[in-house]
Write a protein that binds this DNA or RNA. Structure first.
Lengths: 254, 254
DNA sequence: TCAGGAGTTCCGCTGACCGGAACTCGGTGG
DNA sequence: CCACCGAGTTCCGGTCAGCGGAACTCCTGA
């Protein structure tokens, strides 16, 4: 919904964005509700999008299309990041045997771009391509701590949504945590996004010091002590950063 | 180039499709050449696409955008397939320590949707999201053998491009190979797509017998004997198929 | 200094896109 | 059995988003 610009592209994006990470299929009516587009317009648009395979028809509605999958896989920077990170994430999983994530900063949220482990149905805090608020997750705080000051100000001045009793919702407290994270390079989370979940995260910094992504390990709060894995997570993040920088300098000399 | 329909969406797709799997960045002029769009039109379009992050500006041109990456990650059926397959592919990699691929049938080509191993720079025959012809790769032949008869006819009646001295370019020969593959459920390739490369592949069949994807293991022809791994590849493909079917029946009863 | 290619801006024309309204199709409940 | 409802589809005249030729600037290399 919310302010679809009156251009074809705007409507297209509004339809595509209507699909959340957990929505496999959406029906015509549900899409109409989410996008706010008139029925006739939506109908034509869905037809056109299906023709170019940005959408596919499912058993009882529409889903994001196979073509989109292909294009997404090719999106160069992100793909590289995931390719480079994978070995490190696998290594981290070997060490911890807990769910490992790679998260990207996107607007005021984290987007999960890779995930290893969490094969058991229960523990997964988030699906691939899913989003989480920055202030309530270790990975989000790691990103936020190293993000542009302007972004930090924006997030801190907006109300911080409470997700569990332990979510940090006071700006002062969060600001102090972020300062610590900036110094130590490690972010923690104890049941702040979800009861029963604990998490460590570390930022991946680019050659210019800007945050590119963050790595995290999450596990059940009862048996999983995030502090025990801080060093491993930090090492993985650093390893990824170094590999990225090496690649960048190599390819620029090409 | 080739017949861009005169609609915005058509132009958009033509721009997005201009990016091949190996193109990280394309300049304005190169995009103009590939899409055949007039400069002014292209310029505006690129601006609009950048605004919605379907494209990003790179150091010296445009690249597929971060938003596309997110959307692609969410494309439901393909994502599921990759999620389900990953453990099997990892297992296969553990057994063989050679490059493992998951490939999807898309038009008259294979699209590589997942890849494990090939960490060494040399051996990778293909990038994620890349395409290869069906007749010249084990994975392509596995897909083709089990595809709709109509597709097989089309591919066999078009000229078969030679990629190496050993590429199968005679329709009769290929037809016989496909028949064998259909019986055995395993496809081979000996330096047909690339000199020095050998490969085994097996199809992943859906509950209705239609091909969904194919799994392959590829290695250097000198030390890698594809026959030795036929059983493992076949087992992985079957395992994936069974898991998919189990999931499908479970969720339909929901 | 000039040539040529890359990228940007201008602006008037027009058909691709818009969306209200009227329709069909399958439930469902009175 | 019909009235109603929500989902999805089709029609069609109006209009503005998008079009693209042309003229422009900004580089870079000879």
């Amino acid at each position: 919904m919310s302010e679809v610009p009156n251009t074809l592209l705007g409507k297209v994006m509004s339809v595509l964005n209507a699909f959340g990470a957990d929505d496999d299929e959406l029906g015509f009516a549900e899409l109409g509700r989410r996008t706010g587009l008139p029925k006739a317009t939506l109908h034509r648009l869905l037809g056109d999008l299906t023709d170019v395979r940005l959408l596919d028809r499912g058993t009882s509605g529409y889903r994001l299309g196979g073509h989109l999958f292909q294009l997404g896989i090719r999106a160069s920077v992100e793909r590289r990041l995931v390719e480079v990170s994978t070995p490190y994430l696998e290594d981290l999983y070997e060490r911890t045997h807990e769910t490992v994530h790679l998260g990207l900063l996107e607007g005021h949220e984290v987007v999960y771009a890779a995930k290893i482990g969490g094969h058991r149905q229960a523990s997964s805090p988030s699906r691939l391509g899913g989003r989480m608020p920055l202030h309530a997750t270790a990975i989000g705080k790691a990103l936020l701590a190293h993000a542009q000051p302007a972004l930090r100000t924006e997030v801190l001045s907006a109300p911080l949504a409470r997700r569990t009793p332990r979510t940090v919702v006071t700006p002062g407290m969060l600001r102090r945590q972020l300062a610590t994270i900036r110094q130590t390079g490690v972010a923690y989370e104890f049941e702040e996004s979800r009861v029963g979940l604990a998490c460590v995260a570390a930022p991946v910094l680019g050659h210019d010091g800007a945050v590119v992504a963050a790595v995290s390990v999450a596990g059940p709060a009862i048996r999983f002590d995030p502090r025990a894995h801080a060093a491993s997570v930090h090492a993985a993040a650093t390893g990824i950063a170094l590999t990225l920088i090496r690649r960048a300098t190599l390819s620029s000399g090409n």
